[in-house]
């Protein structure tokens, strides 16, 4: 297929436009986050360029009629929630996927039960959990009902990622360890786990991202203390201000810097591996 230059260029151009479409909101966010404040609204044109809204986020501006974004507490909650969700769902996903390495009766049922967690719309999971909690007299909280709802969502992703990893895993190294007298649990710790760790990492990343930005499930399940997405949702029920855009720009920059660091680390390790390989050839 790669020897169709016209088709290839056309598709490349299209893909560039497509990525432009994905990033269009960020262009708008970027421009409007520099709107003058506090009277400038979240729309064009820019009345005057300023960094007012960035200062506003960090509480560096004099008090005005625009309430500060409730970022501090809600951000901590969202990060905590995302972290615990990540750990729990990765552990559950790895365990379940490990069980799937053997064929067992009812595996089809378990597979679909787990996958159901990502198929049922979030608003329904939130509603159902809220109903159950209300009837049992359990008070809803972000660390309780919302947490279990998040894991219901992220566990299937972790499971599928680990299933794919195990599908490509060479069982013979485990058998080799057993035949050396090493019991299965220790084999898992010393051999299997280090080898599947890249997969575990990506399933953790998946779970963290999904949970951090989770909104529909959290809405009904979180109770009184809000997570970050809930706080943002709360603001646009009233009136939105460019501080939201400034926050969006900051999170995007943060993501990109994390990604850059990751990319640099990766290329360093690849580079090192290559160097070793070249040395080998010289010898």
């Amino acid at each position: 297929m790669e020897n169709r230059p016209i088709l290839r260029s056309a598709l490349a151009l299209y893909t560039a436009l497509f990525i432009g479409f994905l990033y269009a909101p960020f262009v708008v966010l970027g421009i409007l986050s520099f709107q003058s404040g506090p009277e400038g609204g979240p729309q064009f044109p820019i009345t005057e360029w300023s960094t007012y809204w960035y200062e506003h986020i960090f509480g560096l501006t004099p008090p005005s009629r625009v309430a500060p974004l409730p970022i501090g507490e809600t951000l901590v909650r969202s990060l905590t929630l995302a972290f615990t969700t990540m750990v729990t769902s990765t552990v559950l996903g790895t365990m379940t996927a490990q069980a799937f390495r053997r064929r067992f009766k009812g595996s089809g049922f378990v597979f679909y039960l787990v996958v159901l967690g990502m198929i049922v719309p979030g608003v329904l999971v939130g509603l159902g959990i809220a109903l159950v909690a209300n009837n049992l007299g359990i008070s809803r909280a972000w660390w309780g009902t919302a947490f279990v709802a998040h894991v219901v969502y992220t566990f299937p992703f972790a499971f599928l990622v680990m299933l794919a990893i195990f599908n490509r895993f060479d069982k013979s190294v485990e058998e080799a360890a057993w035949s050396l007298g090493v019991p299965p649990m220790r084999t898992f710790r010393k051999v299997t786990f280090p080898l599947i760790f890249p997969g575990v990492l990506s399933s953790m990343l998946f779970a963290f991202t999904l949970s951090y930005d989770e909104f529909p499930r959290t809405l009904f399940a979180a109770g009184a203390d809000l997570t970050l997405p809930l706080a943002i949702y709360g603001t646009f029920a009233v009136e939105i201000h460019p501080n939201l855009f400034a926050f969006g720009v900051l999170t995007t920059l943060f993501s990109f810097s994390l990604l850059t660091v990751y990319g640099i680390l990766m290329s360093i390790s690849i580079h090192r591996a290559k160097k070793v390989a070249i040395q080998e050839e010289i010898e």
Partner: peptide
């Protein structure tokens, strides 16, 4: 990458 920015903010844009 856009997914690491709250989809609510992206929608509002």
């Amino acid at each position: 990458v856009p997914f690491w920015t709250s989809f609510l903010i992206r929608v509002l844009a």
